[in-house]
Simulated scan of single mutants.
Amino acid sequence: MSNRPVNELHQFTLPLTIGGTRLEIAGMHREGTGVPLVFLHGFGSTKEDYADVVQQAELADRPVLAWDAPGCGATTCSDLTAISVPFLVEVARAVLRAKGIERFHVVGHSMGGLTALVLADQDPSRVVGFVDIEGNVAPEDCFLSRQIISHQIISHHHPDPQGFIDEFRTRVWASPYWSSAQYAAGLPHKVRAGAVRPIFESMVELSDHGGLMDRFLGLPFPRMFMYGEQNDTLSYLGHLAENGVELAEIPHSAHFPMYSNAPAMWARITGFVLRTGRQEVPRRP
């Protein structure tokens, strides 16, 4: 066994108020040198998806920041109906400001990838590089979130958010894709039922009408799009490559490479960060 010391992460809580909604952000961070690494998790996941950053020796000196999105994990939120992707972007801005981070690498998965895309599009000068792990860039990416419409049992007349998430969990658990059952098993513990509808509806709206592909391709810094090999049929992969986006196919994986093939995922993230951030010096506000 290796005796290599691990540069530990430390947990924190951060009280915020965004548009009248009170939050207690549960996060993890570490100090370091170089461009900070900011991680945004997906729907129904938590910041711990990225805790193994401490095992990446080549990133050992990097500052790290991650937090549980409102409605997920240990973060508390006074009004779950207020949550949307634009709301998550405002939360990200506030957390970055509170932690004094001006320029950063961002890694976002699924919902977190979409949040990172909108954040980066609004202020691209702050982002050094972007690893998008199957974040939404086209309508076809709503294979999970569009179930709020295709399997809708939540309505204004018969609101049943817990019923929806219970059925959603059952469908995902039975999926033939890598790590689906593992993901589904954690849903009751990682996401509040009342957050599902507003998050999913916001993701669908942006994917269908938000011009995400043009916004992603228009970003002026290095981008990697990471996907599992079971999702290699995504129709736009060639289009991304033709427009300068680095593709990273993760073997033995589908939508959740952090569960099914974490070593391969981290190897690609680490290589990308080292290549794109070598000459960058972070600026403080």
Rank of each mutant, 00 (worst) to 15 (best):
H209E: 10
A60E: 06
Q11E: 15
M28P: 02
V273E: 12
G19C: 07
I101K: 00
T46W: 00
Q162K: 11
E134V: 04
A60T: 05
S202D: 08
G218S: 07
K190M: 05
D166R: 15
L247R: 09
V89Q: 10
I269S: 08
S125N: 08
R97K: 15
V245Y: 10
V85Y: 01
I199N: 05
L23G: 07
G210D: 07
P63T: 01
V95P: 02
G228S: 11
I154P: 02
I250Q: 06
G211N: 14
E31N: 13
P285N: 01
G108F: 00
K99H: 15
I133M: 03
T17W: 08
R284V: 11
L219R: 04
H189Y: 15
A26C: 02
W266P: 10
G186V: 00
V95E: 05
S84D: 00
Y50W: 05
T170K: 14
G44L: 06
L88T: 03
G32K: 08
S155Q: 08
G186W: 01
A66W: 13
F272P: 11
P5H: 04
A193V: 03
S45C: 11
H239V: 10
P176N: 02
I165L: 14
Q147E: 08
A94E: 14
I269V: 14
A26K: 09
P124D: 01
P161S: 11
L88C: 12
A248N: 01
S155P: 06
M203S: 10
A74L: 13
V38E: 05
D123S: 14
M224Y: 01
L59K: 01
P86N: 01
G211K: 04
A94P: 04
D214N: 15
H10G: 04
F168C: 02
V273H: 01
T81W: 00
P198S: 03
H209R: 12
E140F: 11
E31A: 11
G100H: 00
L119F: 15
S78E: 06
A98Y: 04
S145G: 05
S145Q: 00
T21V: 14
Q11S: 15
V106T: 05
Q147I: 00
L144I: 11
K47W: 00
W266L: 14
I250R: 09
V118E: 12
A51H: 15
Y183I: 10
R197W: 10
E205K: 10
A120Q: 03
S207W: 04
E249W: 00
T33Y: 06
I153D: 09
D132S: 12
H156T: 11
R278Y: 13
L217S: 09
Q147N: 11
L117I: 02
E167K: 10
